[in-house]
């Protein structure tokens, strides 16, 4: 690789233009990778079975009357929503990144004329169409069962929901880059991420609807970033949010996206300088 000319440092605009040019190719590579490892891909999808288990449990609980204003049907739409949003927005950047940093394969990627964060984004975005295909049966059942409350039949809520999916994807991506980049500095960055995941499971609405949590936990969930990764899009989708509440939440979500984006890039910059590229 040493013979390859290092491109001159361009401005941010030129940088973006080059990324835009490379992106379609990167996406194509990503898609064919997903198709090549389709068995593995399906197994990954199947690991997200917790919403279905929780759905079964709440069904048993709500068999003799609704819980709050959740009856059996509301639980079905909620957890199918969780399943769909989770599968559409999740990725595994943190494991990939911390492994590449630790075993040194990142050094080769740093030499490429495209920033590794963009390459990672392309890699994980290209899995989205296949994921959408896999969740389409669940989405169809959701629409059928929960039709009367779906997005409150409101065009604005539909737009907010679509925007919130983008926001959730970006938020998850940036927090994962941030946690992954911590591997530049310490060994057990994956341990930290596991702690993060534990809190996420409770305060994002993944295990139980946030409404069912005690009051203090709910107010914590409202201000922490976790809800905006999962609970908020789901709540908008199944009609739990008014137009006003949804717009406020969307603003907060993109606030968090900006914050974690900046933090991820910042930690990355410091980390790369720190990186001594062992192995390779």
């Amino acid at each position: 690789m040493s013979g390859e000319a290092v491109p001159a440092r361009p401005g941010f605009a030129a940088d973006l233009a080059r990324v835009a040019k490379a992106f379609p190719t990167l996406l194509r590579v990503g898609v064919s990778e997903v198709v090549a490892y389709r068995a593995e891909f399906l197994v990954w999808i199947l690991t997200t079975n917790m919403p279905l288990v929780m759905l079964a449990i709440w069904h048993a609980v709500a068999a003799d009357g609704p819980v709050g204003h959740f009856d059996q049907r509301a639980f079905t739409t909620y957890y199918l929503g969780v399943l769909a949003v989770r599968l559409l927005t999740s990725n595994w950047v943190v494991w990939q990144l911390s492994m590449e940093i630790r075993d040194g394969t990142l050094s080769a990627k740093l030499l490429r004329p495209i920033h590794p964060i963009y390459a990672l984004a392309a890699d994980h975005l290209s899995a989205v169409p296949m994921r959408a295909l896999v969740i389409s049966p669940a989405a169809a059942i959701l629409a059928y069962v929960g039709w009367d409350r779906l997005l409150r039949h409101d065009g604005v809520l539909l737009l907010v929901f679509l925007a919130s999916l983008v926001g959730a994807w970006l938020l998850i991506f940036f927090t994962m880059i941030l946690m992954g980049a911590i591997a530049f500095f310490i060994e057990s960055s994956l341990g930290i991420f596991e702690l993060w995941l534990g809190v996420h499971a409770i305060l994002s609405g993944y295990l139980v609807p946030l409404e069912a949590l005690p009051h203090w936990a709910r107010s914590a969930a409202d201000v922490l970033p976790f809800r905006f990764m999962l609970g908020f899009p789901v709540e908008a989708l199944v009609g739990l949010l008014s137009r006003h509440d949804a717009l406020v939440a969307l603003a907060a979500q993109f606030g968090y996206v900006a914050f974690f984006g900046a933090a991820a890039v910042g930690v990355w910059r410091v980390g790369v300088r720190h990186f001594s590229a062992y192995g390779g």
Binding site: V61, G198, I202, L207, V208, P214
Partner: peptide, 23 residues
């Protein structure tokens, strides 16, 4: 760190059970 994570996961395990039997 791993010991701490184990304790945290125990708490995460208990939360849904507590919530369900709360109602």
């Amino acid at each position: 760190v791993k010991g701490l994570i184990a304790v945290l996961w125990m708490a995460v395990t208990l939360v849904p059970v507590l919530v369900v039997f709360g109602v």
